[in-house]
Design a protein around this nucleic acid. Structure first.
Lengths: 198, 198
DNA sequence: GTCTATAAATAGATAGAC
DNA sequence: GTCTATCTATTTATAGAC
């Protein structure tokens, strides 16, 4: 049954996106996944051959989804600060993908296993689109070093803050860390950076 | 023998700081640590009772060392941008502590285990000292919301970039990601943020 | 304090019935 | 495709000799 197959496979993937993000690769067991997804233990290996292949599929899904979304967001006509806020919101809505990817980046061991050779050279998902948005908003192309500086500043703040919000700020009462506060922070940073480049 | 005891215990701690950072809590085994530290497997449980207690000791050591260092860096007389660059360098020199702490923050499971209740409310190590440095450099106390904005921007960039440098940029040849480039980025961001607050 | 040996639990993966 | 049962390996933790 093709329908049943898709259902089971999809349930395994979507459950794994959450569990790998929360407990890491080593901290998640196939039995965890199977129980949570309400599928049989053996079906995980049946569909994905191994735990490692499953993790690969999870990472690929998260990265591709994010790159597609950023591309969609950063179309001509979008103001840079609006686009960055949308990126931030996307990360909140897909926090598990962000966390899995970041845990992978931070793991020497697993990074070598899952991102061998030159595939590590890709930048942040949608980096090119954000660069184009900066150029459009400035009305000119800044020097390379200025453009890269702006990208580093903006991406690092959006990404880092999305992680902290997800892991630490959410559901607590720390001053100036509500999602509205953070969105205002991003907008202000965006304006300050653009002004410095102009 | 007290001397031997210290030696063994210290070797276990310093090896664990590296291994937990690289492979995570679940990914690191007591046997790994014992082999790498060249001590007997049983001595880890002898000195620390359990793997969890050892992890606690490792995290505490990393956080305390960092908070002490930032306090030492951000004394009156230090220019803010110099202090932030020193913080960045400290993170590079102690990348394992930064990675362990961040992995813990990103792990729902382990965070609940190791940071129960209100102990989660502490800010970044040395946050207060950096705030004081901003106020000194401005020559006035800005509005609370402006001060918190500046802190968020500066800490997120220094921290996030230290992680990325450690995990992705180091030993590769990506434009504008050398440690000198990053230090210039931090200085520029610092000037831009201070100018916006003035 | 340090070691070997081992207990007790749990992991990933697979064989084979249905 | 789905299930149970099981193999093999590895884990943390501890008991007991030295």
């Amino acid at each position: 049954m093709v329908e049943k197959e898709l259902e089971t496979k999809e349930r395994i993937i979507s459950t794994s996106r959450v569990l790998f993000a929360e407990k890491g690769f080593e901290g998640t067991t196939i039995r965890n996944i199977a129980t949570e997804a309400e599928v049989n233990v053996a079906s995980v290996n049946y569909y994905f051959s191994s735990k490692e292949k499953l993790f690969e599929a999870v990472l690929r899904a998260g990265f591709n989804d994010c790159a597609a979304e950023v591309t969609k967001i950063m179309i001509p006509g979008t103001r840079l600060e609006d686009g960055l806020v949308q990126m931030f919101r996307y990360h909140l809505d897909h926090r598990h993908d962000l966390l899995s990817m970041f845990k992978l980046l931070m793991s020497t061991q697993e990074k070598q296993r899952f991102m061998p050779d030159e595939s590590q050279d890709f930048g942040p998902p949608g980096g090119k689109c954000v660069a184009d948005a900066i150029i459009r908003e400035l009305g000119k192309r800044p020097r390379d070093q200025d453009l890269h500086w702006a990208l580093k500043i903006l991406f690092s703040h959006v990404t880092h803050t999305a992680i902290l919000y997800t892991c630490c700020f959410k559901d607590r009462h720390i001053p100036f860390t509500s999602d509205e506060d953070i969105e205002q922070s991003i907008r202000r940073l965006c304006r300050v950076v653009l002004a410095d480049l102009a």
